[in-house]
Amino acid sequence: MSAEEDLLGATAMFTPAGSYTLWIDQVGAYVVCLADMIAIGGPSTGVNAADVPLLANLSRRHITFLRSGERYVLHAHAATSVGGRPVNEKCDLADGAELQLGTSVRLRFRIPSVVSGSARLEFLSDHRPASAADGVVLMSDTCLMGPSAENHIRCPAWPSSLLLFRRDGNLRVKGREDLFLDGRHSPEGGILVEGTMVSATDLRFRVERFA
């Protein structure tokens, strides 16, 4: 076992929470990953499966994103290139980097907002997880959902942005709109758990655990 894997294994033990899928009306399904370390790989049902397994010809854990502070480091466990250049073990990621995993999987790494350290993975090739997902958010402290391009999850028809944030180990939501959580009025920082439905006049989404 290399020192690298040691490190990764140790970090994995502190994963605060898993991943959620947000089913957003008129937008799509987005996977929000809360852990600081997210592995992406091929299809697997085993214990060592990736956090986001894609239906693609990849290693079981092909790459790992590691967030430390504002930085994102990509650890490549199999053939990977960033911006056309092969990655040898690891490399820093910048906004807009294009990743190629194996021969055919292509992803784009984005940090759309300057006020948040969260990142978004866009699927450039047609490889997706087995269950529906239109994008993956690697969420640090906050995740913005709203109409403009600076949001992590772009919801063009929404009147204003919502903020997902962590507090006291919970995932919470707040926004300018009058929000209802499962039909109950929740003006400030309602807690999102599996199955919560968030709605306002012009928006609606449901939180599910990402399978």
Partner: peptide, 20 residues
């Protein structure tokens, strides 16, 4: 925009609505 059916509803047997 309001939609008639909420996520997780099953108006049609065999299909579960996930989102509008």
């Amino acid at each position: 925009m309001k939609f008639a059916y909420a996520p997780e509803s099953t108006p049609l047997p065999g299909y579960k609505i996930k989102r509008a």
